[in-house]
Simulated scan of single mutants.
Amino acid sequence: MHFDDTKRSLFKRKKEITTDNLLPWIIDAQQFLEKCTQCADCISVCPENIIIKGDGGFPNIDFDLGECVFCGKCADVCKEPIFTATSASPWQKKALIKQTCLAHENIYCRSCAESCEAQALTFQLGISAIPIIDTDLCIGCGACVAPCPTKAIEIKELK
C-alpha cells in the first residue's frame, strides 16, 4: 500500500499566515500570532459582527461584513498582552481603490463615498468620476468596502 503524505498537510499549520486584516490596536503582528490563544472572545464581543476566524484560526476583520467602529471591545476583552491602549490610534490602515472600480469603465457609481462618514472620498472630474481617497481623512474603518459592487476597495496598512 502506498502512503500519500501530501494529505497530511491538511492538518498542519500553514507556514505563512496572512496578517492583512488583524484587529485594531495590535502591538505587533508577530507577537499577535505567537500569543493569541484563538479563544474567540474578541469575535463574540464585537458589536458589528465583523471579526471572524481567519487564516490559521486567528481573528481577522472581514470588511465585507461591515465597518469597524473602533469601540475597543476586542482589545478590552483580550487577556493576552497583544494590544496597545485603545486611547492610541487603532492603526495606520487606509482604503485603497483598485483598477476594478467601475469608474475606470466609465460607469457611474458613488457607493463608496456615500458610505464614508469621514468624507475621505472625493471624485476627480472627467468622463467618469474617479474616486480619490484623502489619506489624512481616511481612518481605515472599512465602511466603503461592503457597498462596493466590484470589491474594488481594500483596507491596507500604509508602509
Score class of each variant (00 low, 15 high):
T135Y: 13
G72T: 11
I107C: 05
I51Q: 00
I132M: 12
K98G: 08
I153K: 03
I132D: 04
C116K: 03
E154A: 12
I153M: 03
K73E: 15
L65C: 02
K53F: 08
T135I: 14
I107Q: 09
E80L: 11
K93S: 01
K53N: 12
W91D: 08
V145F: 06
I51M: 02
C74W: 05
N49S: 15
K98D: 14
K53L: 10
S111C: 11
E114D: 13
D55V: 09
T100F: 00
L137N: 13
N106M: 08
A143P: 04
C144I: 01
Q124L: 15
S89W: 06
L125N: 11
P149K: 09
T150G: 03
I82Y: 06
G57A: 13
E117M: 09
V77T: 09
C71G: 12
P90K: 07
C148W: 01
D136I: 06
C141Y: 04
A95F: 04
C112R: 14
C116T: 02
L65N: 10
T135N: 11
S87F: 11
T84D: 03
I51Y: 02
N60I: 08
P81S: 09
I61G: 07
P81F: 04
F63T: 09
V69M: 14
I82W: 06
C109G: 04
G66N: 00
K151H: 14
A103C: 03
G57K: 10
E117H: 07
F83T: 05
F63S: 11
